[in-house]
Design a protein around this nucleic acid. Structure first.
Length: 648
RNA sequence: GCCACCCUAGCUCAGUGGUAGAGCAGCUCACUCGUAAUGAGCAGGUCGUCGGUUCAAAUCCGACGGGUGGCUCCA
């Protein structure tokens, strides 16, 4: 099973907002926790979820007690339940060498052992409400708690520091020797925590309140379940996720590789990956031609002036490779294609009759992602984007925007992608002039336009504030990697800022110059992220049209090599990617090899097949068909490819 | 970038102070086989790099590089 959610939580609400009946997605959990979604939590009923929530929350408290016993000087921060368990953040103070003390893997074992002892004590969880002064006295040695209490006392902030807008009630839960600032709920006593259904998983650094300017705390992640079987299933699911990991399959299927000397985040596409890229581009070009896009091509770098005009440099210089200087002029490698497309739009005089203008390009971009942010091919520094920019009038906007959304859905149908969330990202007033172009009126107008278009089109979406692009709101399509990491696969952005900055105009029916709106869109994402995602989505078993190798001819003995080679040539002549395995292996070994490479069609040929020009067909799924006339099979394969069929 | 952990042959891994091993893959030979591994032989590593400790370092320490899990970030 994949840890991605079974059903996208499409409910028209903020993805981080409260959702009835799902305590593990309650607002008192920091945003990261609520963004990861658990398989189990989606399936269980409300009372199961409530029970798991209590178990996890209580296990976190027990862990904090164990940590405080081992490190009495430790300062405790926050410890919420998350969708597969819980975590707790600690500040362990300075070690002898003056550097921050950190947990060791041995600590985890000790802490876990002590936790089991505490659980056996059947200590009751006791709730009480306290005044702000009492709370301050209770946690006088706990600076992080004091900070949270200050927020609670001031109102509108919960015990995790998240804004609630609710009236402040300060409460604590106490069990055994440990009392924590906490709203609960908890199990009745520690004996209700199954001692064989939790496991401390990892140690990680985490910034206090998620802000990298704050000190880094030590976080321990744990997983906790209602019983031993559930824990076992969860651990098995993690193993299965590792098997589908695109980094592993990408190596096994010889799709891509990385080389230390080339550099981190700079994938090398092997021939199999190259083939897949060609197929994706073929798809995109067909679909875009049909939808009235024109193809353009632009350079990989430009003068600094271009990115100053676009506004990218002041906003995103950190994510760009540093400039290079030639003949006294600074050049940047492009992190995006839009400024170039804007220049193409602006290169000719445009009439309202020409609009919409849709410019498409699989543009190659380079972004300097921090080293710790790289992740296989899903997060890289060089990428080729399924990019296009649509220039249109305000009157055309809704239709154009929804046509792009329809294009997403067409692709997602083709790939059977049903686990995703469409997310409308809007601005936040506090970021105006910093993260965002400073024009609140246009922000509100375009956000409303997008919202209206989505609602009119009947497209479910969630809305999140403060996640927009600097030039406008956007609709992102969020997907999850095999190991549960969330990514934006496709994006659809409204840009009300750049057309003006580039002085782009068209002449309207009254002869007046007007500024067009621009829609940025990338439904097929980047090749890097798309192929990484597809590898995990299909676990390497791609539909025939996308397979690097579509058919392999396997002779039974050397006597059939000539015939096998001839069949492979005939397949290739008809555009089917096929090879003949003429090696010294036995037939069984050749089948195994082809099977491991996920070749969809294996054509076994022996004496009978040579005599009758048939093949004995083995498909990747293990199904077989004997005495298939070669011509008929060739026609079938060609049809599966041409129709981009989902089946074999 | 920050915290923790990891890096031994193309791949998966064993080896925890006395100078390197296995399986698979590769190559050669034999076998000529009916739907997931035929057998034998050969070759392949300055143990990520550099420095330190030691009579002796894959093994201990440090720096750097790369990776993994998180945090931050994600146009």
């Amino acid at each position: 099973m994949s840890p991605r959610p079974d059903r996208p939580p499409i409910d028209g609400r903020d993805a981080r907002g409260p959702r009835p009946g799902r305590r593990c997605d309650h607002t008192d959990i920091p945003s990261v926790a609520s963004r990861r979604r658990s398989h189990a939590m989606q399936n269980g009923n409300a009372s199961d979820q409530d029970k798991l929530y209590r178990i996890r929350h209580s296990t976190a408290h027990v862990m904090a007690q164990a940590v405080l016993e081992i490190y009495p000087e430790a300062k405790i921060a926050i410890g919420p339940p998350i969708d597969t368990g819980f975590y707790y953040d600690f500040d362990l103070g300075a070690a002898d060498d003056g550097r921050p003390r950190t947990f060791t893997p041995d600590d985890l074992e000790r802490i876990e052992a002590r936790m089991r002892e505490i659980i056996k004590g059947n200590h009751r969880f006791a709730y009480r409400e306290v005044s702000a002064d009492e709370a301050r006295a209770l946690f006088v040695d706990q600076p992080y708690k004091l900070e949270l209490i200050a927020g609670l006392a001031a109102g509108g902030v919960d015990e995790y520091g998240n804004e609630t807008g609710a009236a402040p009630v300060i409460s604590t839960y106490r069990h055994d020797t440990f009392e924590d600032l906490c709203r609960g709920p908890h199990v009745e006593h520690t004996g209700q925590i199954p001692g064989n259904a939790f496991k401390l998983m990892s140690v990680a650094g985490a910034y206090w309140r998620g802000d990298e300017h704050n000190p880094m705390l030590q976080r321990i992640y744990g997983t906790a379940w209602a019983n031993k079987q559930q824990l076992f299933e969860h651990l098995q699911m993690l193993e299965e996720a590792k098997r589908r990991d695109h980094r592993k399959i990408g190596r096994q299927l010889e799709i891509f590789t990385f080389d230390d000397e080339v550099g981190p985040g700079l994938p090398l596409w092997l021939p199999n990956g190259g083939t897949m890229i060609e197929e994706l581009e073929r798809l995109a070009k067909e679909v875009e031609a049909e939808a009235g896009y024109a193809r353009v091509r632009t350079p990989h770098l430009s003068k600094e002036d271009l990115f100053l005009r676009s506004g990218h440099l002041p906003y995103y210089a950190e994510s760009m490779y540093p400039p290079m200087e030639m003949e006294g002029v600074r050049y940047y490698i492009k992190p995006m294609n839009c400024p170039f497309h804007h220049k193409i739009f602006g290169a000719t005089q445009r009439s309202y009759r020409d609009l919409p203008v849709r410019l498409a390009e699989y543009g190659t971009c380079y972004r300097f992602e921090k080293s710790g942010e790289l992740f296989g091919t899903m997060r890289v520094r060089s990428m080729q984007m399924n990019d296009a920019h649509i220039y249109c009038t305000e009157a055309q906007f809704e239709q154009e925007f929804m046509a792009v959304v329809a294009m997403y859905r067409r692709y997602f149908d083709l790939f059977d992608i049903d686990k995703f969330v469409m997310r409308l990202s809007t601005h936040h007033p506090k970021g105006l002039g910093k993260k965002y172009v400073d024009n609140e009126r246009l922000w509100l107008e375009t956000e409303d336009m997008v919202r209206r278009a989505m609602v009119n089109g009947g497209v479910p979406f969630v809305e999140v504030a403060d996640e927009a692009a600097f030039y406008g709101p956007k609709i992102d399509v969020q997907i999850w990697s095999a190991i549960g990491r969330e990514f934006t696969l496709a994006t659809n952005q409204v840009d009300f800022a750049q057309p003006e900055r580039f002085a782009l105009t068209y002449v309207d029916e009254h002869g007046e110059a007007r500024t067009p709106l621009c829609i940025h869109r990338a439904p097929l994402s980047t090749h890097e992220r798309m192929i990484g995602f597809l590898i995990e989505h299909y676990a390497g078993r791609f539909p025939v049209w996308l397979c690097p190798e579509q058919a392999r001819v396997i002779p039974i003995t050397d006597d059939h090599n000539g015939h096998a080679a001839s069949l492979a040539r005939q397949l290739a002549a008809e555009g089917v990617r096929a090879t003949a395995d003429l090696g010294a292996d036995r037939m069984n070994a050749k089948i195994r090899t082809a099977q491991l490479m996920q070749v969809p069609y294996m054509l076994v040929v022996g004496d009978r097949e040579v005599a009758e020009n048939t093949v004995s067909l083995r498909r990747r799924d293990g199904s077989r068909a004997n005495d298939v006339p070669f011509g008929a099979l060739l026609a079938t394969i060609k049809d599966k490819v041409a129709s981009r069929a989902k089946d074999l």
